[in-house]
Design a binder for these strands. Structure first.
Lengths: 262, 262
DNA sequence: CCTGGTGGTTCCATTATTTGAAACTTAGTC
DNA sequence: GACTAAGTTTCAAATAATGGAACCACCAGG
């Protein structure tokens, strides 16, 4: 990760640099970036200048480091509100959380990865961006598999090609063929399980959120630990989760497509 | 807002378009943007293409609308974590919230506006992006004034020139001169009040977060309503808030500048 | 006080990219 | 079927990005 050959004119390159800073996870010096970047010194420098000037990056002159800028936080607020399912799903997730008392995730697909856009946590209620905005693998999480299972074939192929298939636990599906079999089972069943495939001790039941037309637009999951409960017990909530997913889908449909003339 | 004459080469223009979509607050059609934009049809079109291809925008082909893309949410997660005070301030805010039981805001300055990066709410604990990422005016909020009061003169001048000085309530400082007098008082006192200057019935005490060198890096406020309490009662917490601000500043100092060799 | 080195910034002729008026293609109306 | 509005593509001219090399500032060691 870092020096992708990706292009889209100047804008694409600039965003590439932005990603690079994001990937670092901490403030980075010019020379650090120069190492991982495919761009020559002067070019990289100008990009950093521009991005900083635009508020997408912030530059600490005392330490000569660059970090992601606050303008991003502002934009993300708008993005989260206008193009994620989170705002309209909120009341339904609240209900589900109240009924089940378990941790709930709301996720969407982004670039072949699972992007968590909201969360309800029984134990620690406040979590903010620290959980919303997080990304995870698609092939070994409940929400990920739930979304993959309803993806059209061509899209699925693309997404699968981006998966790393790293074996996180003994239960991880570590190759595409096995995963595809699992996806068929999920689709037949209507919901997905995570049988400690990503983290030991963590299990979940996940349900896709589908439009009337059958397109996946997201997924919800109910998560717990093997110490607290069993898969079978979680499965008992499947109906409730699917009901919630249905309500969110309906809401999304009417929100995203408000004008349906006579 | 919308058609700024702002420039920074191609990248700046593209980000300008991004802002435009964000400003709309809802999915927009090509022609909507064309109206507010200073760019000709073909140019705007190509920017939208590029941004969409990059995942910064999402395009709904059924309705021909563009909205902010989820990639932003992902970037913001990183931005929030690596360049806002929120992650390191969290435990201290939790403490302060526990002690006082009131609503707490953590804010930073961005482009002359107040950007809220975290929040603790007594009543409704979960709030996510809906509050983090929000922006507000600087000249008539507690956190805003607290930060302005410690800004160096030249920076203050720039920021003041960007304020709208809209009179939200009868108590709003509606012109720079009056505000500057208030800022001096705040600096002398060590903390700022919001005397229903932004919203009727909402009052707060706010404290700046300052580095050892005296630079403002943010502010915290304790907010309440005139129905529940009085300014004098809130002021009683001022010491506690300043203590919290001090701890956050110390933490920030050691986090942002970790390597201090022997 | 020089000297060598590293990290960062600026120059500028060359080159590739962006630009935008106009032509074109849909999709929707009367 | 002709008319209009909305969105998409073309292409020569204009502009902006490129990156090698020179430059600057700071530091450590001699």
């Amino acid at each position: 990760m870092g020096a992708e050959g990706n292009q889209d004119g100047t804008v694409g390159k600039a965003l590439d640099v932005l990603d690079m800073v994001a990937a670092a996870g901490k403030p980075v010096r010019f020379s650090d970036l120069l190492g991982t970047s495919i761009y020559p010194k002067a070019t990289l420098y100008r990009f950093l200048q521009t991005l900083t000037h635009q508020g997408m990056l912030s530059h600490d002159p005392d330490h000569g480091t660059y970090a992601l800028g606050v303008r991003l936080v502002r934009l993300a607020h708008a993005a989260w509100q206008q193009s994620s399912l989170a705002p309209l799903a909120r009341p339904y997730l609240d209900d589900l959380a109240a009924i089940t008392g378990e941790t709930i995730h709301l996720a969407q697909m982004d670039m072949g990865q699972v992007l968590y856009v909201d969360k309800r946590n029984a134990a620690r209620p406040v979590d903010m961006f620290s959980s919303a905005g997080k990304v995870g693998p698609a092939y070994c999480t409940g929400v990920g598999k739930a979304m993959l299972a309803w993806l059209p074939d061509d899209a699925l192929k693309t997404v699968l090609s981006r998966q790393s298939f790293h074996r996180f636990t003994p239960h991880t599906y570590a190759d595409p063929a096995a995963l595809i079999t699992e996806l068929h089972a999920i689709r037949a069943r209507g919901y997905a399980f995570d049988r400690e495939e990503h983290e030991p001790g963590i299990i979940c039941v996940a349900v896709p959120i589908l439009t009337k037309a059958g397109r996946v637009i997201g997924a919800i999951s109910l998560t717990s630990t093997t110490q607290r409960t069993t898969l079978a017990a979680l499965e008992a909530c499947a109906d409730k989760i699917m009901e919630t997913a249905g309500k969110i889908a309906a809401e999304a449909e009417s929100w995203r497509f408000p004008e349906q003339h006579s």
